[in-house]
Design a protein around this nucleic acid. Structure first.
Lengths: 212, 212
DNA sequence: TCCTGTGAAGCTTTTCACAGCA
DNA sequence: TGCTGTGAAAAGCTTCACAGGA
């Protein structure tokens, strides 16, 4: 398949992992990589790597492998990371502040361009160079900023209302750290990071350890 | 299937979500719930809910539904959450501090019992009532604590060495926030929370918006 | 009648296996 | 020979549909 159609989410997640590996390789001065070598680094098997990369068109040279630089560029394009994205971050609690300071966003091409919180105590303060604005101002502030991505780093009970405000402001992709299922219009895409989910899986595995 | 065998990870994740819903319902004084009602709350369809719960044995009453309290207890048991778990947290940067302060851990039965960091500037300081110890002390300190779960909230380059130290100290389950694939012995279970993965998926969706 | 538990169907994702090219 | 790209097979997960119990 030559042009990029819908790529399944598991594949997208692995492409992001390959990107990290390819960046490392570039820093190490590696110029070519086989599906097997890339798979080993990323923790997947070679066939999986080839199938994933086949979504991006034909790239590899039989008998040789893939060229690190061009492959990386191709994945960046497929993931839509080349232009950079503005992001609204809602919640200036400890998680929100950690995210505001996280350097990885910028490296991946994401720019947190505004920070919001409901708590009047936090409004007006600065976090990582950004002033905290009240949540009610999301829509008006985004009229200029035109960010399409929002991150919710607020407590569960506030999350649904925040999601509504973000969508109202024109956001169409939400990354949700609150432990609740958001109900949003179906043109809005939501990804959730839920600690209690991760912990539940670990805990189950732990309690099974040794049996099987 | 009456006794609990291996439960697939997607099911475990949903069970954690049901648990949150059931807790809410208990607070609201709801005593009984049908698979459809629970599904609606958790964002899954009724058949999925019944299939998931069938891993825990037979519980529901046809024509009535499930009793909220007993069902919740049963899920807690299946997830191995009843006894509580001690957790070692490594990394006292902004993410580590946010996790150390996160109240959700305790509510789910996880207790962060020690905090470690490589940075001498951070060692000795207190975060959320916990003193920060140097990473080299993980093994000795865990000789008494006997925690089996470790959380890595350190930068990528440090993560692999930390994972080694945790495993050395007897940890068998790791929750990794660093954007690297950890290589560990196969008796060790790893779950990864990777922001670049989440962002990559959102970004791809964003760049596809409107076509299809 | 209402709702569970579950075999079977349907769909998605992963793995296999090999033709074909450098 | 070494490695890609890809149909086909296998595995895994979700949804359907209905028998049967309260």
């Amino acid at each position: 398949m030559s042009s990029v159609r819908r790529i399944p989410a598991p594949t997208l997640e692995r492409l992001a992992a390959y990107l990290t590996c390819l960046r490392e390789m570039q820093e190490e001065g590696v110029a070519k990589v086989s599906s097997e070598a890339l798979g080993k680094r990323a923790g997947n098997n070679a066939a999986q790597v080839r199938k994933d990369l086949s979504h991006l068109g034909q790239f590899g040279k039989p008998g040789v492998g893939y060229e690190v630089g061009p492959l990386r560029d191709r994945i960046v394009r497929a993931l839509g990371l080349s232009g950079g994205h503005k992001v609204l971050l809602v919640g200036a609690g400890s998680l929100g502040r950690a995210l505001a300071r996280y350097q990885g966003f910028r490296r991946e091409g994401f720019e947190i361009c505004a920070l919001f919180d409901n708590d009047p105590q936090k409004v007006g303060h600065k976090v990582g160079g950004l002033e905290v604005f009240p949540v009610e101002e999301i829509a008006t502030r985004n009229r200029e900023l035109r960010a399409a991505i929002g991150i919710i780093a607020a407590p569960g009970p506030a999350a649904q209302a925040i999601a509504g405000a973000l969508v109202e402001a024109g956001v169409t992709c939400i990354l949700n750290f609150a432990p609740v299922r958001l109900r949003v219009a179906k043109h809005v895409a939501v990804r959730a990071v839920d600690l209690s989910r991760e912990l539940a899986v670990l805990s189950h595995w732990l309690s099974r350890r040794g049996r099987e």
